[in-house]
């Protein structure tokens, strides 16, 4: 159960404009009981170019997380399909890194062993990936903590380990579901900028779900605004906030314009934000 078989192994798209992730009229309905159904996503269509950082912002319960699950191939859509690099997703596929709101670190493993979990699961050669794991940890400021246990780390540090774990096997797509939601505001922005540094070093296509408009604008190349349930796309905005992003980017006039624009879209849809 991976991507649908394709003839030749698809070369990564050369042009940055060709869609890498395509969501084709995705709908998702959950069975609540025998006769009650919940429409979580309603014909969501959008495409994301390779190495693009796409933030998905929306009110709670709008199906943001469902969107990530469908993209990872963990759920099957009720209608429509997800296409990755031209191949439809029919199940969990190689090349996904996931980060959730909870860091999901295994308490009994050291930091390094936690980061190497994907390598172990995928039976990749450990010797090759250990150096990579260490360098990822160094990039997020955790050099020297390789042998520590998660319980010895702060929440922010734990989530950094979680991000390294999502990147260690060099996935093409990083799926993040409100990764910084349980971190205090100051640490949150630092973590976001750390993430940008990481993805600059190791280019990745990122789908980043958040309910913070500011966070979406600070981090993304493109913002997809989802409306309240059933989730459908209200707006898509190109984020022209200059790079590299820093904490100072928040005082840029474009930052406020984008935030206002997104807020406006929510208000027009009747979502108080």
């Amino acid at each position: 159960m991976k991507l649908a078989p394709a003839g030749p192994a698809p070369a990564r798209s050369a042009s940055n404009r060709t869609p890498f992730v395509e969501l084709k009229d995705l709908s998702m309905e959950y069975d609540l009981t025998a006769d009650a159904r919940l429409l979580a996503l309603d014909r969501v269509a959008c495409s994301i170019a390779e190495s693009e950082f796409c933030a998905i912002v929306g009110p709670s319960g709008c199906g943001k997380s469902t969107l990530l699950m469908l993209t990872a191939g963990l759920y099957h859509p009720s209608a429509g399909q997800v296409v990755i690099d031209g191949r439809p997703v029919i199940g969990p596929w190689d090349g996904v890194g996931m980060v959730f709101q909870r860091d999901l670190l295994l308490e009994w493993r050291t930091v390094l062993e936690n980061v190497l979990l994907p390598v172990e699961v995928k039976r990749l050669p450990r010797s090759e990936f250990e150096g990579r794991a260490r360098s990822l940890l160094r990039l997020v400021g955790l050099a020297g903590f390789e042998g520590a246990y998660p319980e010895q780390l702060s929440i922010g540090m734990r989530q950094r380990v979680g991000i390294c774990r999502a990147l260690v096997h060099d996935p093409v797509l990083l799926l993040m579901d409100e990764p910084f939601a349980s971190v205090d505001l100051l640490t949150r922005e630092k973590l976001g900028l750390d993430l940008l540094r990481l993805t600059a070093e190791h280019p990745k296509t990122v789908l980043f779900v958040t309910h913070s408009v500011e966070e979406a604008v600070l981090l993304s190349d493109e913002v997809v605004v989802l409306g309240p349930r059933p989730g459908r796309i209200l707006r898509r905005l190109e984020n022209d906030l200059p790079k590299p992003r820093t904490l100072a980017s928040r005082s840029d006039a474009r930052f406020h314009r984008l935030v206002d624009e997104i807020r406006g879209a929510f208000q027009a849809a009747g979502v108080l934000s």
Partner: peptide, 9 residues
């Protein structure tokens, strides 16, 4: 966590 493991194959 189970989702995460499944996503890793």
């Amino acid at each position: 966590m189970i989702h995460l493991m499944r996503s890793l194959g």
